[in-house]
């Protein structure tokens, strides 16, 4: 039986609550993530993949990824070439390692741009409301109707083919779609009384958006971002296949997979290995995003 400290203030003496320790947000998040094995595993995979991106040149020279060796044509994995060779006789291991650079750049680059812009547009539309909200959202509706592929072709026509153009082409329609999601989430938060309380205290609009609104939708933003990152990698691959992405010899996961697809009948390992890498990457990003959202929400803390 607890609750014997009735010498304390009578009104607050009796719930059996322990004092919560003061700690920084970062520590709280770390503590939460450490408790969940799956999230930890996902984090490790992501770190390994990032290391692979950073240290690609040390693992295997770029030369290997583009050099064609007739003997290696559709070769099966061996000790010397752990992932075998592709249809043009290039070393698949080297291509995957170096391909990760372009794929990650596409995936994360477009995601960061789209999420940042979407958060800004979505939050400001919901907070300011009125005509600004109306015009901005109708404009976003318009953008959503333009397919990314069409946009990529248009951009390529104007500014040439290349990775930055591809990133822009992917992030524009995504900004529009995600900002609508964020707007509706922010709208929910704006309607709550603590926003009015903040105004009554005299907190400025920008502070309200950054200190009170964004932290309450950060979970949703993260989930959106992780889903985007995976989609963007695939989208980059699709556009690359059409010749709108990385210039031809550049290794890129989507491209490798598409190449391998043509020879699936003779050699399945190209597709299998690339898919595995793509799937593991997307999965760990999603799992980590989920874990991070839970870690950031104080309401979910303490629930195992």
């Amino acid at each position: 039986m607890k609750r014997t400290d009735s010498t304390r203030l009578p009104t607050t003496s009796d719930a059996g609550q322990k004092r919560r320790k003061k700690e920084t947000q970062l520590r709280q998040v770390w503590r939460h993530i450490r408790k969940h094995k799956l999230v930890m595993a996902a984090l490790c995979v992501i770190i390994a993949l990032l290391l692979m991106v950073a240290l690609a040149d040390f693992i295997v020279p770029y030369e290997m990824a583009v050099r064609q060796d007739p003997a290696l044509k559709l070769a099966s994995p061996s000790l010397e070439h752990p992932f075998g060779g592709d249809a043009l006789g290039r070393d698949l291991f080297a291509r995957i390692i170096h391909g990760s650079r372009v794929t990650f750049l596409l995936g994360f680059g477009a995601t960061i741009i789209a999420t940042t812009l979407a958060t800004f547009f979505g939050a400001s539309a919901a907070y300011i409301g009125g005509r600004y909200d109306n015009y901005l959202m109708r404009f976003m509706d318009m953008i959503i109707t333009i397919p990314a592929i069409l946009l990529a072709i248009a951009i390529a026509a104007g500014f040439g083919v290349g990775i930055p153009q591809l990133i822009i082409a992917i992030s524009i329609p995504q900004t529009a779609a995600v900002s609508r999601v964020i707007r509706s989430a922010v709208l929910n938060v704006v309607g709550q009384e603590f926003i009015e309380a903040a105004k009554a205290i005299g907190i400025g609009n920008l502070s309200i958006i950054f200190k009170h609104i964004i932290p309450n939708v950060i979970g949703l933003i993260l989930i959106q971002a992780t889903m985007e990152a995976a989609t963007n990698m695939l989208m980059g691959a699709a556009l690359g296949f059409l010749g709108l992405g990385a210039p031809i010899p550049t290794p890129e996961w989507g491209l490798i997979m598409k190449d391998g697809l043509q020879y699936l009948r003779y050699s399945y390992h190209t597709v299998l290995i690339t898919t595995f890498f793509l799937a593991v990457t997307a999965l760990s990003i999603n799992i980590f995003g989920d874990g991070l959202r839970d870690a950031l929400d104080p309401r979910l803390k303490g629930r195992a």
């Binding site: 039986m1 609750r3 009796d14 719930a15």
Partner: peptide, 18 residues
Amino acid sequence: EGLMPDPTDLPEGCKFHP
């Protein structure tokens, strides 16, 4: 005075005694 007891950890004896 005080609050409703925690229903997962009710007091012994009379529930109202605290």
